[in-house]
Design a protein around this nucleic acid. Structure first.
Length: 269
DNA sequence: ATGGTAGCACGGCTA
């Protein structure tokens, strides 16, 4: 089973690019981020006409996540628990089953967190975007603990808005104070991974220079000024089934591309 | 310190 994650940066603007990728990569399941669409206005036919089931968790204008799958999507849940006042659509879950077993899948769009606002003591300013990012990651930890307790294969995939290590950026020094790379962000992410996850790309293809995002501005892609922020995290049950993991970087060179590219994993299920 | 690009939706926010 080939599972993938792709931040498409607007489903309406990305119809052609998404279609090209679905036809060439042919994932069995994919989580999408930044659909920037409500559930009602999502162009479902684009995906359903290719034989995929589709579940969306949308929002007008911003954010929004979705899961598409050739297998039926079971036990679908929407939203990250832990804060009823949070209206941002950044989390969706579903289960798929084959004759070999079942897989629980999380599709997530972790908050960017910029601009970083700190008080005089260096603490994140309450109500600011950076405080929201860290609080969201604390809620994510609680949900991941509950999912790990299911003791079944689990894939947590999406735009994590975290550069895990210096080797995951072409110019790490340019990101030192950024919400994607500053030390408290990396520590919070490391804490999540340490709950019991494997970074699928890192174990299959270790080393620097593997990016999933290049800014639209200042010719970042042409200069290969990229960062690795889209991740496939597998619990031990799923990591035991991992065959391969790759980044489809060539999609960034296509017509009207997203600023992110897909990452996929082949799982023996 | 600023500006550079893109999406949504048509003004300004988000990234």
């Amino acid at each position: 089973m080939k599972i993938a994650s792709f931040n498409i940066n607007g489903i309406k603007a990305r119809a052609a690019a998404l279609e090209r990728w679905l036809d060439s990569a042919a994932p069995d399941l994919a989580v999408l981020q930044e659909i920037k669409s409500t559930d009602e206005t999502f162009p479902r036919a684009l995906i359903e006409d290719k034989g995929y089931n589709l579940e969306t968790h949308g929002q007008k204008g911003f954010n929004g996540v979705a899961i598409l799958s050739k297998l039926p999507l079971e036990d679908v849940t929407r939203g990250l628990p832990g804060d009823d006042s949070d209206t941002q659509a950044r989390w969706i879950e579903a289960t798929v089953s084959t004759d070999k077993g079942a897989l629980r899948v999380v599709g997530l769009y972790l908050p960017n967190g910029n601009p970083v606002e700190l008080d005089d003591d260096g603490a994140p300013v309450a109500g600011g975007k950076y405080a929201y990012k860290l609080a969201w990651m604390a809620r994510m930890e609680a949900r991941l603990r509950a999912l790990l307790a299911l003791e079944m294969p689990l894939a947590v995939m999406g735009d994590c808005n975290i550069i895990p290590q210096a080797e995951d950026a072409a110019r790490p020094d340019a990101w030192r104070e950024d919400a994607l790379f500053r030390l408290p962000s990396r520590k919070a992410f490391r804490r999540l991974v340490a709950l019991g996850f494997t970074d699928a790309l890192r174990v299959r293809h270790p080393g620097p220079g593997q990016y999933t995002f290049w800014d639209y501005q200042a010719g970042a892609f042409e200069r290969n000024d990229g960062i690795r922020i889209d991740h496939v995290l597998l619990n031990a049950y799923a990591a035991d089934l991992l065959r391969d993991c790759r980044i489809d970087a060539e999609t960034r060179a296509g017509e009207k591309p997203s600023d992110h590219v897909p990452i996929w994993a082949e799982i023996d299920l």
